[in-house]
């Protein structure tokens, strides 16, 4: 590990220093490792911008897991059967666990969980825009499992081969559990779709409301995605937003048919020539609006998160005070 940065490597005259030469050697080794599909590990040298980009992405990912607990836990106390209640509780618990893995992965890059949570609470770091939509019926829990987790998996499976080792390994574990949740969400929707008329209508309504926001989870179109090109060069990302979105649509169409539900897009049809489904235009105004904080639940989500953190401060203080009192003996021994 080295503290060499572009700034410290150049002296006031702009001529090359020993550090600068070192940096060039390290950078070449880094580029070669990425080119050879080797994993970058926490102690390896990496460009500052690579580190910053990963911190941003992993933190946002962790924040999404934590905020993502809210729309689903909204239904824990109202789940209509004990079996479904157990499944939902287990899922929300897994999400907290995913948040923990991801904060740990981010911490290998030299930031702390507290620092990142602070940025989330103050709005300086984002979370996935999808969680700013409300869960209005029980069927939303199924739609989130099928569509939102489905989109997340489509995004995350390629991240299992991401160039940064700790992130890639966290993704392997997260994806296994997410696939399980997705199947459960699908099965929940299937039960509703095949249930009473009211249940079927509830399922269709949920899919109608979650379909477009799920497509937005892949991010802006390729020509408007500011981080994409660099992330792909560094092999943090493996596929473009539009590629992944297309893959997701192609996966969902037959699944919707099997569910006996329709997708709310009159322009959706198979294109023989492309070998893909064509689909309608996403409402990008809504996307940017939600991203800027003006979605239906942005304020509510952040307020709840901040409140949990603030109201829990005395508990964390107590744990720290207790640890200090009771570790003195060991520390001096």
């Amino acid at each position: 590990m080295t503290a060499v940065t572009a700034e410290t490597g150049t002296n006031t005259h702009g001529s090359q220093t020993a550090d600068d030469k070192d940096t060039a050697v390290y950078a070449a080794a880094f580029d070669a490792a990425v080119a050879a599909d080797e994993r970058i590990e926490p102690r390896d040298w990496m460009p500052d911008a690579y580190r910053a980009s990963l911190v941003r992405q992993i933190a946002q990912h962790a924040h999404s897991e934590i905020i993502g607990m809210q729309p689903e836990s909204n239904w824990i106390t109202r789940a209509p059967s004990l079996r479904r209640k157990a499944i939902l509780m287990a899922k929300v618990q897994d999400e907290a666990g995913h948040g923990l893995y991801l904060y740990s992965a981010a911490e290998t890059l030299g930031v702390s969980r507290d620092e990142l949570l602070d940025k989330l609470h103050s709005g300086r770091q984002k979370y996935s825009s999808i969680f700013n939509y409300p869960t209005l019926t029980w069927a939303d829990v199924g739609a989130i499992g099928w569509l939102v987790d489905g989109a997340a998996i489509t995004n995350q499976v390629p991240l299992c081969r991401c160039s940064y080792g700790p992130y890639a390994r966290a993704m392997v574990r997260v994806c296994k559990e997410e696939s399980f949740h997705q199947r459960q969400g699908y099965e929940l929707l299937l039960a509703l779709s095949q249930g009473t008329g009211e249940q079927h209508a509830m399922a269709q309504d949920a899919v109608d409301r979650w379909w477009w926001p799920s497509l937005m989870m892949f991010g802006p179109p390729d020509d408007e995605s500011s981080h994409s090109v660099q992330s792909m060069a560094w092999k943090i990302k493996r596929h473009s937003n539009d590629e992944l979105r297309q893959r997701f649509v192609d996966i969902c169409v037959p699944q919707a048919e099997a569910l006996g539900l329709t997708l709310p897009d009159p322009d959706l049809r198979w294109n023989e020539e492309r070998g893909h489904h064509d689909f309608g235009t996403i409402d990008w105004t809504e996307f940017w609006d939600v991203l800027k904080g003006n979605g239906p639940c942005n304020e509510q989500r952040l307020t709840q998160r901040r409140r949990a953190h603030e109201e829990g401060a005395w508990v964390r203080d107590a744990a720290a005070a207790y640890a200090t009192k009771h570790s003195n003996g060991e520390a001096t021994a």
Partner: peptide, 29 residues
């Protein structure tokens, strides 16, 4: 305990409280 989901003072407690809630729900069933 399920009412705590998303409101716990620290992430580790989100996991712990949900875990206990799940154990109890299993016993209840």
């Amino acid at each position: 305990l399920g009412e705590w989901a998303g409101h716990a003072p620290v992430l580790e407690e989100e996991v712990a409280l949900a875990n206990i809630a799940l154990d109890l729900l299993g016993q209840a069933r």
